[in-house]
Design a protein around this nucleic acid. Structure first.
Lengths: 119, 119
DNA sequence: TGTTAGTATCCGTATAAGCAGATATAAAGA
DNA sequence: TCTTTATATCTGCTTATACGGATACTAACA
């Protein structure tokens, strides 16, 4: 998981209608586009677009059954939302190792701006 | 917490640079703008704008100390990121109660689209 | 009070992404 | 094969937000 991918996960959850979709998918193994259109009372292109967005972000996967496309959550995709996991995720990102070092380096030189050595 | 506010929380976390800021704030009680400029090697307006965004979303609070503005995380703001908490948060949103009912109502009428009564 | 440092905000510009309606594609059935 | 249904994608338009540079505000200090 990269920093951008993590950001993308949050972005996927940053839209009210997508949150409602995720909420529904949490309660059923899968739902198809027409289910969501009815339940959420939204147009087909709107539902389809948001599902595609969730798919691009890796939050859902989908498969065809006859004419219907079923969508379901990818449970692992929500790992960053578990207890303390955001910090762990961030710690593990190689991109952020540099930030760690910059933070340490920055604090190793004396600064004036009222910083107290804080936790 | 409203649905829009929850979406806003995720949106605040959906930008790589803001994630890096949050990551640093997780490790220190507070940091000021000039700290973040140095550590992240970014321009002043960029840092300030992102901090303002985080503040609007309720993820950080800030206070003045002399010339310096200090920013710190609001720990409660990250509650939706705890174990199982997203689902709980969603369940508690009044806006989503209607979705619950729509889901139940929708499933109470016979449908054709290959839905098996699923968990 | 004038200067400087730290910070916030404004500006112009570019891109991402929202929506609704229209069109394209794929599978099922007559 | 023609039609219908379910879904995906395109189009035109609008809004949100990213960026960097410029400007404005605030506090400290000479």
């Amino acid at each position: 998981m990269s920093l951008d991918a993590l950001a993308q996960t949050f972005k996927a959850l940053s839209e009210p209608l997508r949150l409602r979709i995720v909420h529904l998918l949490m309660q059923r193994n899968s739902l198809c586009v027409c289910d969501l259109m009815s339940i959420l009372d939204q147009g087909q292109s709107t539902i389809s677009r948001h599902l595609n967005y969730l798919k691009q972000a890796g939050l859902v996967h989908h498969w065809r059954e006859g004419t219907w496309m079923h969508y379901a959550l990818v449970p692992e995709a929500l790992v960053p939302l578990q207890a303390g996991a955001l910090q762990q995720c961030l710690q593990q990102l190689p991109e952020l190792a540099a930030d760690q070092e910059a933070l340490a380096a920055y604090e190793s030189t004396p600064r004036q701006c009222g910083r107290t050595a804080s936790a």
